[in-house]
Design a protein around this nucleic acid. Structure first.
Lengths: 203, 203
DNA sequence: ATTTAATTTAACCAAATGGTTAATGCAAAA
DNA sequence: TTTTGCATTAACCATTTGGTTAAATTAAAT
């Protein structure tokens, strides 16, 4: 039935259960059932619940913030970088919509979870670099003055929220799966348009 | 020490624990400790964990969507209604930032949670009404054509996400509490500006 | 083929957990 | 003062939970 190794199946199962139930809410037996293996195997491949959790958590964290590098390590024009980032960000979140909710909630329970988890992603470099990019655009008169903080908050919000809030939005707006999905697909363009039009308005 | 009744203290404690840990992750003993009462009191005032949870959940749900009525039951001009809604929405979420995360996650675990929980908020009326408001503005040439769905997604995203993602944003953008709070306060205006400027651009 | 190592399982255990109960305190009514 | 009904507590119980272990099975090395 399954081509994957026990270890891989455990990680997939653990991701499913942890993201939905959180560290304390997840049951080792549920993870074992989901992975179709004996419960003892969980402790054979991963020392205990906490360690299994942390491995999953770190993987998901990197997935979410991996897209940020697109904003920096690209030689494209500013507008196109924004468009690429928006599209990538929406696609990533669509792949696993619970991910951001999971990360936000677990970080609130245990703030130390973030410490040292961004080794591979040089946040300070990305920040400095992107501020310079924005400044250059402002100097060239291409965009209005805006802070990195405001811009990033706007883009992340518009990309992430409509996907993580899917069940609520579908209920409130009375949408079926199909029309909801069309709306999200359309956002890959409309969010970029919104952001870029906002930047072009000179105060 | 506390002026509140045992029942009130339980609800406050339960809100704190449930919103952070979820239904399965929450421990009745933790709620009792947080409320400073004997564990048996929980079952004295509320039949069981599930019932206590559902009462908390419904309350929080209404708090979040209460603001939507501002968009309808106001006689203000369109632009001002948007501004009022944005300000209200941000204030509500600031009061209890875990609330939306909690609701989004629990609804994903158990979709039936939403069923029948909007008795007091006539969603269909609000939708119809607001669509008419938008149409009227479009007809008057005040705003570009936009769907209720897109507009609501944009506004909700920009208001809610930056607050629920606080710990992550502070870490990624290297912000202290003070500068983070300033940014959010500024959004009460800047989000409205962004939305309204977008609407004024005629395609 | 035999030994060795890695993988998998069922049975088990101590601790934690949701929930109950019988006894106790305690204020207002009689 | 006595009684009545609500509020509160400690002790208790059955079940669940994370974790262990020793035996069994399978795969790899000799």
């Amino acid at each position: 039935m399954s081509e994957l190794s026990a270890q891989e199946r455990i990680k997939i199962a653990a991701t499913k259960v942890f993201t939905l139930k959180g560290l304390e809410g997840a049951r080792m037996q549920d993870i074992a059932d989901e992975a179709n293996i004996n419960k003892a195997m969980l402790h054979y491949y991963f020392r205990n619940k906490k360690q299994l959790f942390e491995i999953i958590f770190e993987e998901k964290l990197h997935k979410i913030f991996g897209a940020m590098e697109l904003l920096i390590f690209s030689k494209d024009a500013f507008e196109n970088r924004i468009r690429a980032f928006v599209e990538k960000q929406i696609s990533i979140v669509l792949e696993f919509p619970v991910m951001p909710i999971f990360v936000m909630l677990e970080v609130r329970k245990n703030p130390e979870l973030l410490e040292g988890k961004f080794k591979n992603i040089p946040l300070d470099v990305i920040r400095d670099n992107f501020r310079k990019v924005i400044d250059a655009e402002v100097m060239s008169g291409n965009i209005r003055r805006i802070s990195l903080e405001e811009l990033l908050m706007n883009v992340m919000s518009l990309c992430i929220y409509p996907i993580i809030a899917e069940p609520i939005l579908k209920y409130v707006l009375d949408l079926n799966q199909e029309s909801y999905f069309e709306l999200i697909e359309a956002r890959k363009k409309s969010v970029s348009d919104l952001i870029i039009n906002d930047l072009k308005i000179l105060k």
